[in-house]
Write a protein that binds this DNA or RNA. Structure first.
Length: 596
RNA sequence: GGGGACGUGGUGCAGUUGGUUAGCAUGCCGGUCUGUCACACCGGUGGCCGCGAGUUCGAGUCUCGUCGUCCCCGCCA
């Protein structure tokens, strides 16, 4: 084989008249009869090679090249003639061929490699190795590499140790469903694949490795989404002797480094910090997209004596009347559109949707009046306050929902997102980070009929809250937990961890995990905590989501080299697949019903 | 578990109220062509319309089932 002296991307005018050898794939062949152009591609770029008829057998051999053949070409770098220079097409130079070696022939691929045209994703996944050859995926995978390397460099420079934790580990009852791996040596028992390295990184703190990080693969056996795969990668880190702000600083620092190195963008730190309650009250979600406004305004106080029964009753029952304004959008909301929006609100849990349009009278007075879908029940006083509260101007519209606070928030949050989309209020190419902090420690699971941890059971609760509410209303207990949110995506989260055996036991008690359960499931952690555990805290960021955002991709599949489909299938390998009965027997496993 | 969208030459799409021969672009094959770069031009090849039932004189089109893909809800500490 003629080994390459240069990559395709390295060939520039500066190398004019040098003899070089390149290795790569045939991108395109353009045979003009008397002269033949072959574009060669590698991951560094593309370069045009020129074959001339006077070269005889070399020319005829080149004429039989096909797309995706792998070749070695030796030739002289030459400036293209005047008039044939197309900078944007790949430069001003080309290689005049002297020698060609076909390293391997390719059959016609099932889809275009050289074009960015749409291809059925199923097919892309079945031929992922070809899909990955395409420019977009090459760019994404290289970008992912760059992110990972930047992260490593950042942590390494700050005394963090990269430490691996087990992939075969113990099943934990809390949280997502585990992937299970049967044990052959301990028949009837199972390993689980880790949902995250959570417990191990805490134990590393106990061991004294006070700054840990890992690019960690995590596994969760739950249904998929555009931003969820059964296995995914976290940038996982943990520190001892720190407080929440220290973790935030490190997180902001690593994000800053990544955005700087990958996009050349300087992001502003520190990020905005919003409490969970404030986020819910203002945006109706715990991961608000701050690239646009549409924040909520509470007008409950002005409607306590509303003549509109649903509003009055909701408020009397401790509920609220809230909404948000869409400036200048009133003329776009026809009756049909409003009906559509109302249906959305109802689907999101609202009982109904009120709207108010501000209209300037066309007469000489030019007064601003409100047109609402509850005019009959709206007093002048209420209307005035509505206008004031939302600073309504001509052609503005505001949407209002009344009811129980949480329901109203969530429904308005859904509307906010939908209307931002419809009104094209979401600016491109900007990055709005924020921290959401003080999440509730527990929520009540109707299904399990017990309290469950909102973050995870090792999160430090506000000790004063714990004292006040553990016996009355545990959902009121706040946690020292924080999420980092970017453009409406939760890209990471973490918490201060419990480092007291007693607090940990109180939390387990509240979760309804009894003494025996604590011992069998988390005994090793509780044991460890008896031997001197440092106060510690940590965070984990979703690498796939982060890379997707940086790459401008909507789906994390497009930044994962070999992803699964939404039904958990690998189109390329066919996994999951049948196994031999012998394999099952070695594991003492058999089907209780014929799944095949 | 539930809802929605989709499945037509290798690829991307069109296909009317059910109607006779399923179109278009591109690829692929052959030819012409000495400066192209999505080369151009000429000719050709290529389809069990995902699969299976049903309705009908007749189904790519309608109905039911099934398989696959995608999106959303539930779920994801």
């Amino acid at each position: 084989m003629f080994k390459r002296t240069h990559t395709c991307g390295e060939i520039t005018a500066a190398l004019e008249r040098q003899i070089v050898t390149i290795n790569g794939w045939v991108d395109r062949v353009r045979n003009l009869g008397g002269v033949l152009f072959v574009t060669i591609r590698d991951r560094y770029g593309k370069i045009q090679v020129l074959f001339r008829p006077e070269d005889g057998s070399l020319f005829s051999e080149a004429a039989s090249l096909h797309g995706e053949d792998v070749v070695a070409v030796t030739g002289e770098i030459a400036k293209r003639p005047e008039g044939a220079i197309k900078e944007e097409m790949g430069g001003a130079v080309e290689i005049i061929a002297q020698r060609l070696e076909v390293l391997s022939k390719a059959i016609t691929p099932p889809f275009y490699i050289h074009l960015e045209s749409d291809v059925n994703e199923e097919l892309r996944l079945a031929y992922r190795y070809l899909d990955l050859r395409r420019q977009r995926m090459q760019k994404n995978i290289m970008l992912r590499h760059q992110v990972v390397q930047t992260v490593r460099a950042y942590f390494n420079a700050r005394r963090f140790l990269e430490i691996e934790t087990p992939i075969l580990t113990k099943s934990t009852p809390e949280g997502a469903r585990d992937f299970l791996v049967p044990s052959r040596l301990k028949q009837g028992k199972f390993y689980a694949l880790p949902q995250s390295p959570q417990l191990f990184k805490q134990l590393l703190m106990v061991s004294g490795f006070d700054r840990y990080y890992q690019i960690a693969r995590c596994f969760r056996d739950e249904d998929f989404r555009a931003d969820r795969q059964p296995e995914f990668t976290q940038i996982d880190y943990e520190m001892s002797f720190v407080d929440q702000r220290d973790i935030m600083d490190i997180t902001e620092g690593v994000l800053k480094a990544v955005f700087e190195s990958v996009l050349g963008i300087a992001i502003e730190t520190p990020f905005t910090v919003l409490s969970y309650t404030a986020a819910m009250d203002t945006y109706g979600t715990d991961k608000p997209d701050l690239r646009y406004g549409l924040s909520f305004c509470d007008v409950t106080d002005h409607f306590k004596d509303s003549g509109f029964e649903p509003i009055r009753q909701a408020i009397q029952n401790g509920g609220v009347l809230k909404g948000f304004k869409v400036a200048g959008a009133a003329p776009r909301y026809s009756r049909k559109m409003l009906e559509e929006i109302e249906n959305l609100a109802k689907k999101a849990g609202a009982k109904g949707l009120l709207h108010a349009k501000a209209v300037k009278e066309t007469d000489s007075t030019g007064t601003l009046t409100l047109k609402t879908n509850f005019d009959r029940h709206l007093s002048a006083f209420e209307g005035e306050n509505l206008m004031k509260a939302f600073s309504l101007e001509d052609r503005d519209i505001c949407f209002l929902i009344s009811g129980e606070r949480k329901t109203v928030n969530v429904a308005l949050g859904v509307l906010r997102g939908e209307i931002a989309k419809r009104e094209s209020l979401i600016p491109k190419d900007i990055f709005r980070f924020l921290w959401v902090v003080d999440f509730p420690m527990f929520s009540y699971s109707e299904e399990e009929r017990r309290f469950v941890a909102e973050h995870h059971p090792f999160t430090m609760p506000y000790l004063s809250d714990l004292e006040s509410y553990k016996d009355t209303d545990p959902t009121k207990i706040r946690a020292h937990a924080y999420d980092v949110v970017l453009n409406g995506w939760e890209i990471g989260g973490g918490s201060l961890r419990i480092h007291s055996r007693e607090v940990q036991k109180t939390v387990f008690d509240l979760l309804g995990i009894d003494e025996a359960g604590q011992k069998s499931k988390f005994g090793f952690l509780l044991d460890a905590f008896q031997y001197g555990v440092p106060p510690h805290a940590g965070c984990a960021m979703g690498l796939d989501r982060l890379v997707a955002i940086l790459a401008g991709e909507e789906f994390i599949r497009d930044v994962i080299p070999f992803p699964k489909t939404t039904s958990g299938i690998c189109q390329m390998t066919g996994a999951p697949s049948d196994v031999e009965n012998e394999q099952l027997e070695k594991l003492s496993l058999k089907f209780i019903k014929d799944a095949r």
